[in-house]
Design a protein around this nucleic acid. Structure first.
Lengths: 223, 223
DNA sequence: AAAAAAATGAGTAAGCTATTGATAGTAGAC
DNA sequence: GTCTACTATCAATAGCTTACTCATTTTTTT
């Protein structure tokens, strides 16, 4: 049983999802626009947010960005076929999955459950990562080592955030650059190295968790 | 019972395959275009993907390439008679089998079962290969022997991954070189031998799984 | 059956590439 | 205008790939 937030301006869609979600045993809150969604998402701790990408005023991307400044709540995005494929992909950093409209509620629920499971099994997703003396509070955007706060620059934090979120996976340079800098970054090849270096410096002894995969990229790994 | 993904833009074909697949006891998801296929394939862990090669927008080759960047899910390709024979063969790296349209559903199911069996028996194919004390995590790019991490160089990994993905099949020298080094490699003949040697060294006792086919190439075989 | 030829295995070292670390320049925020 | 963070550049280094050589095994030829 998990706590979901459904964000869509069409009541028909909200009802459809709510019906199925409740049938699956989840509890459901609803928001009808982006502003409301941000407010609710920050106020409450949801296990998952299901959100339409196309909404009047504040669209799904902006909502996602706002929430991600503070929280790590998993987000599934709904979009019309083909719509914004590139943007969704370029924005993948914050989106956990997306489903094309019109969708089958069954399929949506499969994904809902998959995302919740992946995020750590429901009942309030973790906004925190802890390994030995290292902890990352996604919500507060604070990294601490042995209780000591570590100051990170925005890029450092974003890079680290992305690596921690995708820990245990080999991340190629292209992947890291496109996800942290954006698919339209055409800067120097060595920029990533420089930031990895800075990040390692910030992480002190825990820099060992960032493993260099020569010729490939990097991997953040815990034990 | 395995989990399949059927990708075809023609609903008639999807229905035909689904009917037979369900009759065989598999569960079935469907995608109607390449984009959706990639999304679904990356999101869910399918035991097998059955995909038409000719699709509007993103064709089967591109879909295969995208999926292969991340996952090792077996793929069977459907193609019209004679169509793209060479490309399919040249693309052997990612495709596990192919069936010519029009096909008999019975034959397709035979191949489906064969591929699933070959891939390790169904019920959620992992991005992991395990045999006795040897395991390969494709996503993390990690090889372990008896729980001990094995360090491999990029080329070693690539060669090994390719061989594991195509296990049980005789791989010619030309095939290995063109797939791992690229079709435009014009280096020394002995380069492959050298890397096989290094790989065997890394694999220790499991080097026995790499069988030399004199005058042909090599085969990675498990039991 | 012996010799020759072909193919593969093994060791070594040179050359190359990717990554790191150090340093400096540049742009944006306040 | 100053300060901070981001980006670029370059030299040094560690690590990887490749080529070369010679040994060994297998196959073919005579």
């Amino acid at each position: 049983m998990s706590k979901l937030l459904i964000v869509d301006d069409e009541s028909r869609i909200r009802e459809l999802i709510r019906k199925y979600a409740i049938f699956e045993g989840h509890s459901v809150d609803e928001a009808t626009d982006g502003m409301q969604a941000v407010r609710m998402a920050l106020q409450e701790d949801y296990d998952l947010i299901i959100m339409d990408i196309m909404m009047p005023e504040l669209d799904g991307f902006s909502v996602c960005r706002e929430i991600r400044k503070v929280k790590n709540t998993p987000i599934i995005v709904l979009s019309a076929r083909g719509e914004e494929y590139d943007r969704i992909h370029g924005f993948e950093m914050g989106i956990d999955d997306y489903v094309v409209k019109p969708f089958s509620p069954k399929e949506l629920m499969l994904r809902v459950n998959a995302v919740i499971k992946r995020a750590g099994g429901g009942s309030i997703s973790k906004d925190e990562f802890v390994y030995e003396g290292l902890s990352v509070d996604f919500r507060a955007r604070i990294v601490t080592i042995d209780g000591q706060r570590v100051d990170m620059t925005p890029k450092e934090y974003e890079l680290f955030f992305y690596m921690v979120r995708n820990r245990g996976i080999a991340l190629t340079r292209e992947n890291l650059i496109s996800k942290v800098w954006g698919y339209d970054f055409f800067g120097d090849d060595r920029t990533l190295d420089t930031h990895i270096k800075l990040l390692r410096k910030s992480l002190g002894e825990y820099s060992r968790l960032i493993v260099t995969l020569r010729g490939v990229g990097y991997r953040f790994e815990t034990g």
